[in-house]
């Protein structure tokens, strides 16, 4: 075990940035946006697990597990919503859904 925590965090931040970039760039496809969110959540889990290994306590891993449960709930709802919206407008382009305009 000679992996520096800093390298783990750099890997996680790269992953997070990619996920964020995916979410920002793929506005034409809501499913790709959700995938970006999954990538970001994985990056966060990686930080938690790395920190757990750094200090040798189980809490970080536990939070990774909780994030996973949370993600499954979020994904199920989000995908249900995607199905619902697609049924209404026959598209997955997020720019079409602008009823929140103030």
């Amino acid at each position: 075990m000679s992996i520096p925590l800093e390298h783990v965090i750099i890997l996680a931040s790269l992953l997070f940035a990619m996920g964020l970039g995916c979410t920002v760039a793929w506005r034409s496809n809501v499913i790709m946006m959700l995938i970006g969110i999954e990538i970001m959540l994985n990056a966060v889990m990686l930080v938690f697990v790395g920190a757990s290994a750094r200090w040798g306590v189980a809490d970080g891993q536990l939070f990774a597990l909780l994030i996973m449960a949370l993600t499954s709930a979020e994904v199920s709802l989000a995908l249900a919503m995607v199905v619902y919206l697609h049924r209404r407008k026959k598209t997955v382009n997020t720019d079409v859904f602008d009823s929140m305009k103030g």
Partner: peptide, 17 residues
């Protein structure tokens, strides 16, 4: 500033990020 609330999620995400 009100034009910012364009109702487009992508814009909100970019602002947030």
């Amino acid at each position: 500033f009100g034009r910012w609330t364009a109702g487009r999620i992508s814009l909100y995400i970019v602002s947030f990020a």
